[in-house]
């Protein structure tokens, strides 16, 4: 069973942003235990994706973490603007 993490995260984030065309979700590094995913959004959308006190960002991380735990992996998500 393969979970497509890029799709999972981009589907989570897309409705929240005003500039979906600037959204980039990219797998950064992957090995047997861990996976790093980079999320780049437009500067104006950064606040929405992170949320107050990182609430939304942490919720996204928790959901990705749950999906990854079935495969026995750890997942890291970097959220940044460019």
């Amino acid at each position: 069973m393969a979970v497509n993490f890029e799709k999972l995260i981009s589907d989570l984030v897309t409705p929240l942003v005003v500039h979906p065309e600037d959204l980039v979700v990219k797998k950064f590094a992957e090995d047997d235990e861990s996976l790093t995913i980079q999320v780049l959004v437009n500067q104006d959308d950064l606040g929405r994706v992170i949320g107050k006190g990182g609430k939304i960002a942490n919720a996204i991380r928790t959901i990705a973490y749950a999906a990854a735990s079935r495969l026995g992996k750890k997942i890291n998500i970097d959220i940044d603007a460019f």
Binding site: A59, Y65, A66
Partner: peptide, 24 residues
Amino acid sequence: PILIGKNGKTLDAIQTLLKNFINL
């Protein structure tokens, strides 16, 4: 169990996201 998580952590995350989504 996967969707609920430890002490309902994942469940809370889903709820937070959904609430944010709706209220947006």
